[in-house]
Amino acid sequence: MSVDEKAVRRAARLARLAVPEDRLAPLAAELSGILAWVEQLNELDTQNVEPMTSVRPMRLYRRADVVTDGFYAEDIVKNAPRSEDNFFVVPKVVE
């Protein structure tokens, strides 16, 4: 699979990474190289293989429906670059 600049731009947009125009081509080349390399997996027939989910079969652990956490809003916003009255503050969003 060869990745072109358009695909890099699209992935960068999805990943919210500002990529300068002059980096698109080198990144496309790098990504193409890596993807060409991983494509050797296509040599394997995995039609009847289940994807791996856990090392040993185990039951998903469940918590009880009890309130055991929260009520520390100051701690939640403590590291925020911008906060006000315990809200996180971000640039204006238009819906």
Partner: peptide, 22 residues
């Protein structure tokens, strides 16, 4: 850039995300 760590300020939310992460 919202909850912790670096934020590169920008009036536009998407640009804030993209520049912070870049």
């Amino acid at each position: 850039g919202v909850k912790y760590g670096l934020r590169v300020e920008n009036d536009d939310l998407t640009r804030m995300y993209e520049q912070t992460r870049a």
